[in-house]
Amino acid sequence: MAKFFPIGQIMGFVFSLILTVIAMLVYFTDMSFTTGMIILLVTAFIQAGLQFMVFMHAGETEDKWAIYSNIIYGIGLIVLTILGTLLILIWDM
């Protein structure tokens, strides 16, 4: 039975639960908006990286650099798009 529960994935799951609980602190404790946002950004991106690497096995084949650059390219572009959009429509309007 134990062979169906690999230690790596269990650790990953536990770690993702911990990250979620840390993120929840933003709601359950009183903190400034900046601190809260930093916590959310850090936990969300670590959480995403965890999914990609531990659960989605992004790095297990010879295509790993292509897969990683695809994801990083996408994240880079979307961050650019979100920041640009906010700059145009909110911050500098």
Partner: peptide, 24 residues
């Protein structure tokens, strides 16, 4: 390919966003 995603505002420079954004 990267820059093509970083220039789109030039289609609406006159929409009303600030000079800072337009300059970028």
């Amino acid at each position: 390919s990267v820059f093509s995603f970083a220039v789109w505002t030039h289609h609406f420079f006159t929409m009303g966003q600030g000079a800072f954004t337009n300059s970028i």
